[in-house]
Design a binder for these strands. Structure first.
Lengths: 155, 155
DNA sequence: TATTGTTATACTCTATAACTATA
DNA sequence: TATAGTTATAGAGTATAACAATA
């Protein structure tokens, strides 16, 4: 393993560690003036990014979790009036989960706070470096996602 | 928020999501021929990266968790003979946690498997892109870490 | 009195299994 | 019989509080 790779892995591990701690989430949601659990926010932002109502199963796939997990958080969000569920007109077994007006507003705030925060972290970066980061992270994200399939799980 | 930034955040979210799922851990540890919980592996690799025995508190700081969490996993690793604890000669309240020979071997295997896997994901990348990724991720990791302090938690 | 670490406890995140209803 | 989702349950990850021992 060469040095670049070793450095890449180490940097990555540190980033993922930082971004996954409960405290980071707590700080960001507080800045957004929101009091929601992390998976709740993930569901909201997923719906906002999608730009249209999504099925439970489709949300689960995006978040790479099992569907009962999504069911639970959608129920919580529904109770708080941030999403609403409609029977899928094409398939009576399925639901479409839609952001309410308030839900869209909250989701937007969460997304903006995260963006602003990362923007802050990138203060002082040249335009060229920002563009490169965007390009390389996009590529990495795709390649990691594809490459994941090569790791088989034996039950 | 400009498009590059938006794309960066989205790519990042996807990466972190993927890399944090239990299944990814399960696959990597299986490839390493190890049966350990994620935090156990994190502790082992932290010790290996450090290259010398570390205190409980110092490990917790690196992993950005509270110390009881580290206490628990060090206890498990000790029981399996992968680490050993020695009273800190300079401070009778503290311990030094050291990898045993077997622990170092296991930690090395975990680190190698992760590296090899990421290397696989980067197959087809040019040397220039790899070097850029390494440079930008290193910079990002530092800047994110620094910038974290700007988000204050109000209790 | 402050600090290092442990014990006890509880909350959050996520998965699996068993189930219901529709296709 | 297969698929979308739910309910129930359990396990993994982490934090907080109360404590002991040493500085």
């Amino acid at each position: 393993m060469d040095d670049d790779l070793q450095a890449t892995v180490a940097a990555f591990r540190r980033l993922v560690t930082t971004l996954n701690r409960g405290k980071t989430h707590e700080r960001l949601t507080e800045a957004a003036g929101v009091r929601l659990h992390r998976p709740d926010v993930e569901v909201l932002v997923t719906l906002l990014d999608a730009g249209e109502p999504r099925r439970i199963g489709s949300i689960a796939e995006t978040l790479q979790v099992e569907s009962p997990h999504v069911t639970r958080h959608v129920a919580a969000l529904e109770q708080r009036g941030l999403v609403e569920r409609v029977r899928d007109p094409d398939d009576g077994r399925a639901w479409r989960i839609a952001l309410t007006e308030e839900g869209a507003e909250v989701a937007g705030r969460c997304r903006r706070v995260t963006g602003a925060w990362i923007e802050g972290a990138l203060e002082g970066w040249s335009d060229a470096d920002r563009a490169e980061l965007s390009r390389l992270l996009g590529k990495l994200s795709d390649d990691v996602h594809d490459h994941l399939r090569t790791l088989k799980v034996v039950k």
